[in-house]
């Protein structure tokens, strides 16, 4: 689908929540530094980082860049969980009979993603949410006005964008 990179020899990699200079120069794989929207720093093995479309295009656009890659769409919590998930997936690949495990992890990841999406739309305006999910408003103007009237207080103080 989205990726053709084959990296069957990937090993599990640790992620670090605090910035740390890369002192392990002997290590064969390069590390990439990712920065979440809330300014948390993650060091991830290059092969893993390249699975992130944003990271990939970042380096394609500026191949010699050594900068930290900003990920403005995601906060630290879901990002760390997705990285954890990937590590587990890699472990799993070494042991493909554990089909149950895979499902378990998929469900876990789904929870993380759902929470992350929920965080993005919490207290947002109805118009924002329609745009976000690409939903057509199928209410008439009168119906919508009546609905808003039912809980008018709930529309106070929402973020418009």
């Amino acid at each position: 689908m989205s990726s053709s990179t084959d990296s069957p020899t990937l090993t599990t990699e640790t992620t670090q929540l605090s910035p740390q200079p890369d002192t392990e120069t002997a290590q064969p794989t390069k590390k990439i530094t990712l920065k979440s929207s809330d300014n948390q720093i993650f060091e991830v093995e290059e092969a893993v980082a390249m699975e992130f479309a944003t990271v990939k295009s970042f380096f394609e656009d500026s191949p010699s860049s050594t900068d930290t890659v900003p990920l403005p769409n995601v906060t630290a919590k879901p990002l760390s969980q997705v990285i954890e998930f990937c590590k587990e997936q890699i472990k799993f690949k070494a042991n493909p009979d554990e089909a149950q495990k895979k499902k378990y992890h998929s469900e876990d990841l789904l929870d993380v993603l759902n929470q992350a999406v929920a965080d993005r739309i919490e207290n947002k305006s109805v118009e924002y949410v329609r745009g976000f999910f690409g939903i057509d408003n199928d209410f008439t103007a009168e119906e919508e006005a009546a609905l808003r009237q039912e809980h008018a207080w709930a529309y106070e103080g929402v973020d418009e964008d």
Partner: peptide, 15 residues
Amino acid sequence: MIELLNVCIFQLNFS
């Protein structure tokens, strides 16, 4: 969150 999903879609495809 395309960048996150890319990872898991890749992982799932792979398996």
